[in-house]
Every structure is written in structure tokens, then in C-alpha cells.
Simulated scan of single mutants.
Amino acid sequence: MKVKLLILLFLSTFFYSNSQNTLIGTKAPELNPDKWIYPDGVVTSNETKDFTVVDFWFTKCAPCVATIPELNYLSLQNPNIRFLSITFDNTKIIESFLKKATMYYPIGIDTDRKLIKKFKVSGFPETFIIDKKGIIIWQGHPIHLSSALDKLSKGKQNKSNFELSQKNEWNQQSSYSMNIKEHTLEMGPASSLSIQPFDIMLLNKKVKSILNDFYGINNSRIITSDSLFLEKSYDVQLKLNKKVIDQKNSLDIFRFHYLNSIGLKYEKITKNSLVHELIISDNKKLNTFISNEKYEGTSIRYDNWESKGIKLEKLKSFLENNYNLVVELNDENTNKFNFVLPKNNLKKALLKLENQYGITFLEKNKRTYFYEFKKN
């Protein structure tokens, strides 16, 4: 009993939980959704298991779908554990989804969200581990589930091959594994990006977005003969072997292998172009928007781009990515600011920057840098 209590306390304090409504240490609600759907190859079983893992998700939740390969792998590697999932999507949606994605565990249909409410799920995805006595002993994001299960298992398994993709087509390496494939789940604009020290996971991210996020290359700086290729979306997962890889190298490994895998290379060049030089014309106006935010962040809210605690370099990136302007900074202002700008109207955005923020632009034809992309 003492050992079990120590495990409970460790798991409840060490791992991240999606919900602030922790149920750790309480009796789990009965798992009785409206209907169970069993994907191909998955059969119902009343066999007693050591633990039960329950994952709450839905098909339009990009972070949820991104963790399905991880859950698939864990379900195969842990035959002593029952894996289940619960969704509010209806049967038709799930059956359509299963034609495009592989799942190795049953899906419970909870269209009225009765179980979701009983488990007090306030964010997706959210996962629970339940012991034999029906007590919830862990609650958190499924990306941390593997670590939680390692703590519960009697003996750690050899994880040198790492997790499988949805099609089980991992490129095996001694120090890392990386899977890249075109996105086929048709999730619309929903996408996901997760960067952990030894695990990078992307779902439904466009090439141009990946170039921006991982290479610092903005849209207006890209030269390519195949602009449609920049609109392609990919699912990517990189897993590193902690024993032989320094976490500081994870982004370098991603950058190198991603471009190679999609058949791209680039060269930094200079050429003449129309450039918008960003000039602070009224420091007093701009300084009223200096931010005290501890962390920077940007979001799209209605038709506006909203940012908090960002430097002017981030404003430059927004203008280059969203409006395809080539922007240069002529000011070394290191303050952080809050901005709210129209996302779909360049004229209004420039007027607001001038009238409200005291920022103007001087148009010049001059030499500046670009990134020329070619197929390998």
C-alpha cells in the first residue's frame, strides 16, 4: 500500500495535466459510452489487465490526432494494459476517420458528452491511467504517457526502435527515428506543433510554415519555381535516443533531415528588390504599447493578428509571412510590445501601425537577401 501511495504521489506531481480538475486518487467513472467501435484487427476482450488507459480526443483536434501513433505503439508494447479512447464525434465521423488512419484500440462514442463530463475533461487531448481497483492514478497529456507507463512497469522495455507511425513505416536509426509523410487526414486548417527535448511532433503543417518555424525563413524571402509545393502539408515526428543525443542537437537534426526527406535544398542569395524599411516615427506612441508580459505569444482572433510581448523582429515576420512584404529594420529597439493588427487588409494594417503605433515604412529599391529553393 505504501509503494502504491508513493507511485500515486509521484505521478500526480511530476507530469503535466491538461485539466485543472484533477481526479487522481479518486474512483474512475464507469466506462459505458453509447457505443464501442473496434477498428480492423481490434477485438473486444474481458481479460483482466494491470491498468487501463483512457484517452479523450476528437478527430478535428490536431494535437489529439498527432498522438495516435504514440498510443498505437504503446498499446502494442504493453499487452498487460487495456487502451481505450472516448470521443464526442459520432459513428459516421469515426468510421470515415478510420479509413484514413490506423488505431489499435477501441473508440467509445460519447456524443452527449456524459463520460467527458464525468471525467471533468476541460481540454483535449487528456489521458487517464486507471488501476485494477478502478482508481485513477495518473492524468495528463498523452505525449507524457510513455514516461508514466515506464514508472509503472516492472521492467523497462528496450525502446531503441522508438514509436511507430500510423502506417508503421519508421526510418530506423541508431540515435533517432524520423517519420515524414504528406498529410492525408483532411483536417482543414487544424494543425499541431509540439517540441519536447527529445521529441518533435508536427501534424498538418505546411512547408512554408515549417520553413518559418524551424528555419526562420519568411514567405516573402523564398524564391522557388514551385510555389504550390510550399502549400503542401506534412505530418512529421522525430524521436531521439536520450542515451546518445544531446537535446540541444534536436532542432539541428530536424532541420537537416526534414529538407532532405522532402527533396529540397536552398542557398542564401542577394538581389535587388522593393524593400519596406520599418521606421519608428513616433517613439511616444509606440512606447505606450511596451509589454510587461513574461512570455511572448501570437494568435489569430477573428480577423486580427494579436501579439503580446514581442520584439519588432516578430512584427517584421508577420508582415513578411502574411502580406508578402520584404521588410527591413533600421532601429535597434529591444523593447517588447503588444500589437493588434488586421490580418486580411494590408492598407488598414499599415495605417494602424502609423496612426496608433507610430511606425511607418519607407519604400526603397535595394539589394537584400533571399533564400532560393531547388529540388534535390
Rank of each mutant, 00 (worst) to 15 (best):
L238I: 05
H257Y: 12
N249M: 14
N179A: 06
N218Y: 07
G188F: 05
D199A: 01
K181V: 08
D199I: 00
D252I: 10
S250G: 09
N260F: 08
N204M: 02
K232P: 04
N249F: 13
S177I: 15
I195C: 09
S175M: 06
S175Y: 07
E169Y: 02
D199F: 09
N171G: 02
S220H: 11
Q196T: 06
F214M: 11
M187F: 00
F229L: 14
V236Y: 06
I195P: 02
H257A: 05
I210E: 02
E231K: 07
T184A: 07
I195Y: 09
S194P: 00
I262P: 06
L240W: 01
Q196Y: 14
I195W: 07
L230Q: 01
T184L: 01
K242S: 14
S194F: 10
V244H: 09
L228T: 15
M201P: 04
N241L: 05
L238Y: 01
R221D: 04
F256R: 15
Q173R: 13
F256I: 13
F254Q: 05
D235P: 08
L238H: 02
H183C: 13
G216S: 14
G216T: 02
P189L: 04
D235L: 04
H183Q: 15
V236T: 07
S175E: 13
G263D: 08
G188S: 07
G188D: 02
Q196R: 15
L202E: 10
L251H: 04
I253S: 09
M178N: 02
D246M: 06
E231D: 14
K181G: 07
S220P: 07
L202F: 09
E182V: 01
R255H: 06
R255C: 02
V244R: 09
D235W: 10
K239I: 11
I210A: 05
L193H: 03
L228Y: 12
R221P: 04
R221A: 03
K181E: 13
L185Q: 03
D213M: 08
G263K: 11
L251P: 00
K248P: 10
Y215L: 10
S174V: 13
S250H: 06
W170I: 12
S191Q: 06
Q247Y: 15
N218E: 15
S174C: 11
S227Q: 14
K248T: 12
N219D: 11
L211I: 07
H183A: 14
I222R: 05
K248N: 15
G188C: 08
G216H: 02
N249H: 13
S191E: 07
S227G: 02
E231Q: 11
Y176M: 13
F256D: 15
D226S: 13
N179K: 03
Q173G: 14
D213R: 11
L238W: 05
D252F: 11
F229D: 06
L230S: 01
E186N: 15
K239H: 12
D235I: 04
W170S: 05
L238N: 03
E182W: 00
R221S: 09
S225K: 11
S192N: 11
R255W: 04
Y258V: 03
L259C: 10
L202W: 06
S220E: 08
N219S: 14
